[in-house]
Amino acid sequence: MSVALPHRTDGDGCSQVSLAELIALRERIARTRAAPLLSRAARSGQQSSRLYGRGMDYAESRIYQAGDDVRRLDWRLTARSGKLHTKLFQEDREGCLLILLDTHASMRFGTRVRFKSVQAARSAAVAAWYAVRAGERVGVMAFGHAEQLLRPQAGSRGALAVCGALAAWDAQATSGKVEPLSDALTRASRVLHGASRVLLISDGFSCDTPARQRLLDLTRHAGVSVLVVADALELSLAPPGRYPLEHAGERSEVLLQSERQRSEFQSALGAGPARLGELAKSLGLRCNSIDTAIDPLDAVTALFGGARPGR
């Protein structure tokens, strides 16, 4: 379903992603003074990651979890406690961000300023420029209507490639194809390419029950953050009135007068964002929500440790 916003094919920034706008966001990031990231950049361009891998520095031991490397079992602690424990190590690695972008048809919806799909692309571009400024590689994986992957690249070239991919995927004709979030997360776990951080951008309508375990599995390999993109009508009751809607090329009107009608309408529209937000919260993941009208800069950078305007 999509609201009948003005539609053009030149990337108007409302119903269709504007590549020029995504590239211009670089200047916004350049004027932002980044707070310390979760991982700290070293002079060599490498980062000392807080993820645990096969480095030489022992960090701690924890209870063995399915999928752990048996070669890293802590036999002494296992013998003392009677329960299997795994050794965790802090490794040095180049920082890398993988953005997971929802491209389902539900994202082509908007009643304020722009579609959710456009806001999601703007948020992804902000994340890409912010990551490369911090010396990280950046890549993006689309799920839903588009199932494509742009492998992580470093520097401005990487962020520009992400912006180009975002615009190209948005320009494709939409379809009713649905990819459950759990399937997308499984696919993401296979293409992490050493990513130390993952940013999921979605409206949550593809969120299914198995997604919880898939997200949990992903946190074993990378720091996971979630940005929920929602329309104003998905977040609060609509004012009484008639609302023109467009779906599959057909236009109709929805009459919302009574509080019950408006409440039921909001509950149906807001089910996806609410479900994803609750899931992220239950897993203790960094999570922010934005509507389609606001500037996504603060919400995105806060997920990466926060940012302050430069002086």
Rank of each mutant, 00 (worst) to 15 (best):
Q46E: 14
S48M: 05
R151P: 09
L84C: 02
G13N: 07
E264T: 14
E27F: 15
R220W: 12
Q65Y: 02
E136P: 03
A59W: 09
S44T: 15
H85Q: 13
R275T: 14
L150G: 01
S49K: 03
A165D: 03
D12N: 15
R54C: 01
K83T: 04
S2P: 11
I99Y: 10
Y64F: 14
V70K: 01
S175C: 00
G110F: 08
V140M: 03
V140F: 01
D170R: 07
Q148M: 07
G305F: 04
A161T: 00
V254G: 00
A171L: 00
G45E: 11
T292Y: 11
L150N: 01
L101M: 15
L255H: 08
A66I: 12
Q257N: 06
V224C: 10
I23L: 13
D203N: 12
C96E: 06
L73I: 15
Y52T: 14
P309C: 03
A307M: 07
L160V: 09
R286V: 00
G272S: 11
I99F: 11
L5Q: 08
K177Q: 11
L181F: 05
L216R: 05
E253I: 10
S39M: 15
L283R: 13
F265R: 12
S175E: 02
E21T: 14
D170K: 04
R76H: 11
A232N: 01
G277F: 10
M141P: 02
L25E: 14
Q266R: 13
C207K: 12
A79F: 02
S2F: 06
H7K: 12
V126R: 07
D298A: 13
R72P: 07
A293V: 00
L269E: 14
T32K: 15
L285E: 13
A128N: 02
L38Y: 15
R157V: 02
L38M: 13
S206T: 13
T186D: 04
V229Q: 08
S196I: 00
S267Q: 13
L100K: 05
G45L: 05
G284M: 05
A302V: 01
E246L: 06
V113N: 05
R220D: 08
G164V: 14
L181M: 10
A230T: 12
T209A: 14
D68V: 08
Q153V: 00
A24K: 14
D217I: 06
A184T: 08
T292V: 13
L100R: 05
L216Q: 10
L215T: 13
M107Y: 10
L200F: 08
V162R: 08
A302W: 10
L88D: 08
E136A: 02
R275A: 15
Q90P: 00
Q153C: 00
Q266K: 04
R62I: 07
T209P: 15
G176L: 11
A125G: 15
G194Y: 02
F143C: 06
R137M: 11
V254T: 00
H85E: 05
V113G: 01
L297G: 01
A271Q: 08
G241W: 03
A302Y: 11
Q172H: 06
A248D: 14
L200Y: 14
R114L: 07
K87H: 02
F205M: 06
V138T: 07
G272K: 05
R114Y: 04
